[in-house]
Amino acid sequence: GADLHWGQSWELAPAQKTAATLDQISGEFSRGDQSAFAAGSIEVSLEPGLFLPGSVLKQVRRAFFEWLDTTLTQEDYVFHFHSRLEAIWEEWSRIIPEPDDSVRETIRCAWGQRQQHSGARLAVQLFEPAEPSDEIILPDFVAETQLDGVADRIRELIDRGHRRFRVTAWHAFTLLRDYSELELTAAFPLPVANSSALEQLMELGVGRAMAWVELEVEAIEAMLRRCPGRLEQYLYGRLPLLTTRADLKQGGLVADLRDNRFEIIPDAELTTLYHEGVYTSPPIPGLSSFRDLQIAETAQGQRTLPRGNHTLA
Results as ranks from 00 to 15, higher is better:
residue 220 I to D: 01
residue 243 T to H: 06
residue 213 V to W: 15
residue 273 L to T: 04
residue 225 R to G: 06
residue 289 S to D: 04
residue 233 Q to M: 07
residue 238 R to Q: 08
residue 272 T to V: 11
residue 190 L to E: 05
residue 195 S to L: 10
residue 236 Y to Q: 09
residue 285 P to C: 07
residue 230 R to P: 10
residue 297 E to H: 09
residue 280 T to P: 02
residue 189 P to N: 01
residue 304 T to L: 11
residue 276 E to W: 14
residue 205 G to T: 07
residue 189 P to A: 03
residue 301 G to F: 10
residue 225 R to Y: 10
residue 286 G to D: 04
residue 240 P to F: 07
residue 224 L to C: 09
residue 199 E to F: 12
residue 310 H to Q: 10
residue 274 Y to K: 00
residue 204 L to N: 10
residue 225 R to W: 05
residue 295 I to A: 13
residue 249 K to D: 14
residue 236 Y to V: 05
residue 236 Y to W: 13
residue 241 L to P: 07
residue 251 G to Q: 15
residue 212 W to C: 03
residue 292 D to Q: 01
residue 223 M to L: 06
residue 229 G to W: 09
residue 283 P to C: 05
residue 212 W to A: 14
residue 208 R to D: 02
residue 297 E to D: 11
residue 249 K to E: 14
residue 235 L to I: 07
residue 223 M to D: 03
residue 194 N to W: 03
residue 226 R to W: 06
residue 273 L to I: 03
residue 248 L to N: 10
residue 249 K to G: 14
residue 259 D to Y: 08
residue 188 F to N: 10
residue 224 L to Q: 15
residue 268 A to D: 15
residue 228 P to C: 12
residue 263 E to W: 05
residue 209 A to F: 08
residue 272 T to G: 05
residue 240 P to I: 06
residue 270 L to H: 09
residue 275 H to A: 15
residue 218 E to L: 12
residue 218 E to T: 14
residue 307 R to I: 12
residue 295 I to E: 08
residue 243 T to C: 06
residue 262 F to T: 00
residue 211 A to G: 00
residue 281 S to K: 07
residue 252 G to L: 10
residue 239 L to E: 08
residue 249 K to M: 11
residue 228 P to H: 11
residue 306 P to E: 05
residue 215 L to P: 00
residue 218 E to F: 12
residue 230 R to N: 09
residue 191 P to E: 01
